[in-house]
């Protein structure tokens, strides 16, 4: 040892992390690295390359629509700048895309496609729903629904369903990038008209291995689901949905697809706690 004070491990680690996520390569080695010159630069580049590649590979899986919209090269550049600007926070790459939609909104280079961030939100929602717990709706729930007072009951949505509203035609765009022969003229029209859509995403109960389904919610269904999301009782939720809403048809599909978790009794103490 040369008698110089030793570097704390916390500082050494901060310095190496700073160097990895920096846009420039320090000429002199940092963090007390033994390597210098070209060897220092190639070593640092290896870590940058690894981390970026891990993140980009995961993001490709999590944002297939954005990948299809931008093409591989631009998507890769987006992933690299995202990884560097918004480094991962968890040691589980399943969460690496958590902040990508918000990051896209900050980029002037992508401002030409203002629907892109919401399309990313839809991709992220689909990704999250692919691992959501399955619905637990039971025969008992169905009996409670048949026998109970609508003013005292609430339908609890399954964690495998999600509603996502956008000022843009996000479901049309999502579908178009999965079809063999999409009607691009219709897609272009929907964008030009700035056709707002609310996506309804769910993990199909009958085939949990399948990709989550994505559909557009009509206005009545959207009001209905929003009311359920807000924990409203059945009678109030039906009032919100309006007369055009076909509850029986919705319920039949909800049970089949696994949209519901339970029928909650609003008079029961445990449900009161749930909504406190």
């Amino acid at each position: 040892m040369n008698g110089e004070p030793r570097m704390s491990e916390a500082r050494r680690q901060r310095e190496l992390i700073d160097a990895i996520f920096s846009t420039r390569t320090p000429d002199a080695p940092c963090a007390g690295a033994r390597q210098s010159g070209t060897r220092w630069r190639t070593g640092l580049a290896a870590y940058r390359g690894n981390g970026r590649a891990h993140a980009c590979n995961a993001l490709q899986v999590q944002f297939p629509t954005i990948l299809a919209m931008l093409g591989a090269e631009t998507f890769d550049a987006l992933c690299s700048s995202y990884w560097r600007t918004c480094p991962p926070r968890r040691g589980d790459l399943a969460w690496v895309g958590e902040a990508l939609p918000a990051y896209i909104e900050t980029l002037d280079t992508l401002a030409e496609w203002p629907w892109l961030a919401d399309c990313a939100r839809l991709d992220w929602t689909v990704w999250q729903m692919s691992g959501a717990p399955p619905a637990t709706f039971s025969e008992g729930d169905l009996r409670r629904l048949a026998d109970g007072d609508p003013a005292a009951l609430a339908l609890r949505l399954s964690p495998g369903v999600r509603r996502l509203s956008s000022a843009w035609p996000i479901v049309t765009l999502y579908d178009a990038h999965r079809q063999a022969h999409p009607d691009w003229a219709a897609v272009t029209r929907a964008i030009a008209q700035k056709r707002a859509q609310t996506a309804w995403v769910w993990r199909p109960r009958e085939n949990l291995a399948a990709a989550p389904a994505v559909e557009t919610l009509d206005a009545a269904s959207e009001r209905w689901v929003a009311a359920l999301d807000a924990g409203q009782t059945l009678d109030l939720a039906l009032d919100s949905a309006g007369e055009a809403f076909d509850f029986a048809a919705w319920l039949e599909q909800a049970i089949r697809q696994g949209w519901l978790d339970a029928v909650a009794d609003r008079h029961a103490p445990s449900d009161a706690m749930d909504n406190a």
Binding site: R6, S8, E9, A10, R12, Q13, R14, L16, I17, D18, I20, F21, G32, Y47, N50, G51, H54, A55, P87, P88, R89, R90, G91, L93, V96
Partner: peptide, 26 residues
């Protein structure tokens, strides 16, 4: 190691296997 404070953003995770020093502190 992979976790360390970064910038003003709190603790990040580099999603990589970063080397540690073979010191007593480490």
């Amino acid at each position: 190691f992979a976790r360390a404070p970064w910038s003003q953003r709190g603790i990040i995770h580099a999603n990589d296997l970063l080397p540690i020093a073979f010191t007593h502190d480490s």
